[in-house]
């Protein structure tokens, strides 16, 4: 007799805890071949708002830690990811319809991506900031600071590599995030939440909502306590009008990271390409401080 396995309940990740959706709703997640995998929580407007409150609450602490500390926490995420490698290979394989070998390569790339960003945390200010030689007796320095609470529509196709590629650059500089996962491939994101929860990432720094993108994206884009929004996940999302989301974001002048466009249509980026500095640069604000020099 084979043993009956113990299945996991996939829930949201908000404020360091794993609640079900306050709406009580769930939806079926199927594999690339159409087989039932699990019921995921179907996040709601209220879940998004709760997540924003958690992210705002965590911002002071996370942005106030040293860059060295954030780097170590991110590296710890990579360590714990590595330890869960087999689980992610299964989940990514099922979600994306990849054979084990290909899924393994994706998971490895995701782990390496987190390591890459772990090494960035204490370089960002050096690369993006500088002294300014003003024409007068003043000390004048410009340095990047985190933008604040960032809403992210995670990519629809790449359920883990794409996901870490949009989260890591944003938290590396000290932002906190609310992520709406891939609608149809949400399970690796929930497991990533478990990794974050055991990696010394403070609760509320990353909040993960599994949901129908079209339903909750508007609330995230319109939320007045969100400072920036990444629209990457509009590519391939059902019923999402990214122009309308960008227009909503104008209500409090959110910084908008637009989707990559080919021929005017959003496309998901190639996540295996060199990520570059673009996503770090997009979610920082430059602050310039002046002080007189004199006796």
């Amino acid at each position: 007799m084979s043993r009956l396995d113990v299945r996991k309940t996939y829930k949201l990740y908000i404020g360091g805890k794993f609640p079900r959706s306050e709406s009580g709703r769930s939806y079926e997640v199927v594999s690339a071949t159409g087989d039932f995998i699990a019921n995921a929580a179907m996040g709601s407007r209220k879940d998004v708002r709760d997540a924003v409150v958690a992210a705002r609450g965590a911002l002071g602490g996370w942005s106030g830690t040293t860059a060295y500390n954030r780097g170590q926490v991110l590296y710890r995420v990579a360590e714990v990811l590595e330890g869960r490698r087999a689980q992610f290979v299964d989940e990514v394989g099922a979600a994306e319809g990849l054979p084990a070998r290909a899924a393994g390569a994706v998971v490895d790339a995701a782990i390496d991506r987190v390591v890459w960003y772990a090494g960035w945390t204490d370089k960002i200010a050096q690369v993006l900031g500088n002294l300014n030689p003003v024409a007068g007796p003043f000390f004048n320095v410009s340095a990047p600071e985190p933008t604040g609470v960032v809403g992210i529509l995670a990519p629809q196709s790449s359920s883990l590599l794409g996901l870490v590629s949009v989260i890591a650059p944003v938290i590396a500089s000290g932002n906190t995030v609310v992520v709406v996962t891939s609608a149809d491939r949400p399970l690796p994101a929930v497991t990533l939440g478990e990794v974050l929860a055991t990696s010394d990432v403070p609760g509320g720094v990353v909040n993960i909502i599994t949901a129908r993108t079209a339903e909750v994206a508007t609330w995230l884009a319109a939320h007045r306590d969100v400072n920036a929004i990444d629209l990457t996940g509009v590519a391939g999302a059902d019923g999402v009008d990214w122009a309308a989301l960008e227009a909503e974001a104008a209500g409090n002048l959110k910084r908008v990271y637009r989707p990559a466009l080919v021929g005017g249509a959003p496309v998901e980026p190639d996540w295996t390409a060199d990520p570059g500095l673009g996503r770090i640069r997009a979610f920082v604000e430059t602050k310039t401080v002046w002080h007189p020099k004199g006796l």
Binding site: N132, P133, V134, A135, G136, F138, N140, S142, N227, N252, L253, R255, E285, T286, K287, T288, V289, W290, H291, P292
Partner: peptide
């Protein structure tokens, strides 16, 4: 976006100027 300490309203072409939040981007 700009903090003036023990001075105010200083401007220079080498010094970036611009706001946080609803002061623009």
């Amino acid at each position: 976006g700009v903090v003036w300490a023990n001075t105010f309203n200083r401007f220079d072409p080498t010094s970036p100027f611009g706001g946080y939040k609803e002061s623009g981007y």
